[in-house]
Design a protein around this nucleic acid. Structure first.
Length: 335
DNA sequence: AATGAGGGCAACCGCTCCATT
DNA sequence: GAATGGAGCGGTTGCCCTCAT
């Protein structure tokens, strides 16, 4: 951890306004963020929402560049961040997605609620890579003769995560999120299709993937109860758990939502019926995106808006299926 | 108790992409 | 179409902590 560095003694950079107007050189802080800086940025973001980051840095009274503010917000201050160690299920999802997406950490992070690309990247580089290497050295991969361009990929599939296991994970995941599909039917699906239908969770990094917009930056996103942090808002719409035994994302199942409504102000959906309607609408949108096979689909549904305080817009955008197909095509050779 | 090595993680850097002028 | 600036992403760095010796 880096020490917070005192502003007065800091190296300084020049800064440009949003339109390129030169602002007299001002001292820019670098290094670790102090609690005061965090508070300033947090308060500003909660009050004003996201905008031009360089403006945010200036208006919030921070001697930081916009880039630094953005990073701090995304990786640390966002209220919907999940803290703590990765669960085994999250780990498996990361490994699986990495086998398909490679080092596209932002896209992997988009499928893991409350996790940042930086966090996943660090986790991968420190923990998973090491474990995979160890695993491979202990038990040589049966796929070593496979003509794959990625040795790491072979390691993953042959050593730590057999294909059928990964399919189970996806099936489990999809059962939780889509409800109507059975594990067996999903196991029969092409793995690419499963991946394509995985819901994305936030737009904090932007990508070519479908993104759900909700009140993702509101303080209501994270609710606390006796069991720890639960995600209310962007994630709860899928209902159920994304992993086994509540280990993974701790998203309340549908039948729990109604119970929680009595105790938790953060719940947006009024009742189970709303939740089901919303989930169905989600499925419709996802299916439309998937079935239409269009490059870009942008849909806004009334159904979602009803379930969010203040009618926050919830939409699916930037769906580039062809690109995803290209990206995941490497996986087809393993089937 | 001291210390050195390794790991974890926050933050920076440089590049690319995209929107705007 | 070119130039410019902002945002986002992946790679890398470097500091602190933990643990073994």
């Amino acid at each position: 951890m880096r020490k917070p560095i005192g502003g007065a003694n800091e190296p300084h950079n020049s800064i440009l306004s949003t339109k390129g107007t030169a602002i007299p050189t001002m001292k820019m802080r670098k290094g670790l963020w102090s609690p005061e800086e965090d508070e300033k940025l947090m308060n500003y973001m909660i009050t004003n929402g996201q905008g031009c980051w360089s403006d945010i840095a200036r208006n919030a009274g921070l001697q930081r560049c916009g880039k630094s503010c953005r990073l701090r917000w995304i990786n640390y201050l966002r209220p919907d961040l999940k803290r703590g160690a990765f669960s085994p299920q999250e780990e498996e999802v990361i490994i699986h997605l990495h086998s398909i997406l490679g080092n596209r950490w932002s896209q992997i992070a988009a499928r893991l609620p409350g996790r940042t690309d930086n966090e996943i990247k660090n986790f991968w580089n420190s923990t998973v890579k090491k474990r995979l290497k160890k695993n491979t050295s202990n038990s040589p991969s049966p796929n070593t003769s496979h003509d794959s361009s990625s040795s790491e990929h072979r390691d993953i599939m042959g050593g730590l995560m057999p294909v059928h296991d990964s399919s189970n994970i996806m099936a489990m995941y999809m059962d939780a999120t889509r409800g109507s599909l059975s594990s067996s039917s999903l196991q029969a699906m092409n793995i690419n299709q499963m991946i394509e239908q995985l819901p994305l969770t936030s737009d904090h990094h932007g990508s070519n993937m479908p993104i759900l917009h909700g009140s993702c930056y509101g303080t209501n996103q994270v609710g606390m109860d006796g069991n720890g942090i639960n995600y209310h808002g962007c994630y709860e719409i899928f209902g159920g758990n994304l992993g086994q035994e509540d280990e993974m994302f701790n998203i309340p199942p549908l039948d729990n939502l109604t119970n929680n409504n009595n105790n938790n102000q953060d719940i947006k959906c009024e009742n189970l019926e709303d939740t089901i309607i919303m989930t169905n609408n989600m499925n419709i949108i996802m299916n439309q995106c998937y079935n239409n096979n269009k490059h870009k689909v942008q849909a806004i549904t009334e159904g979602f808006e009803n379930c969010w305080e203040g009618g926050d817009e919830l939409k699916v955008e930037e769906w580039d299926l062809e690109e995803l197909m290209r990206e995941s095509s490497i996986f087809a050779s393993l089937d």
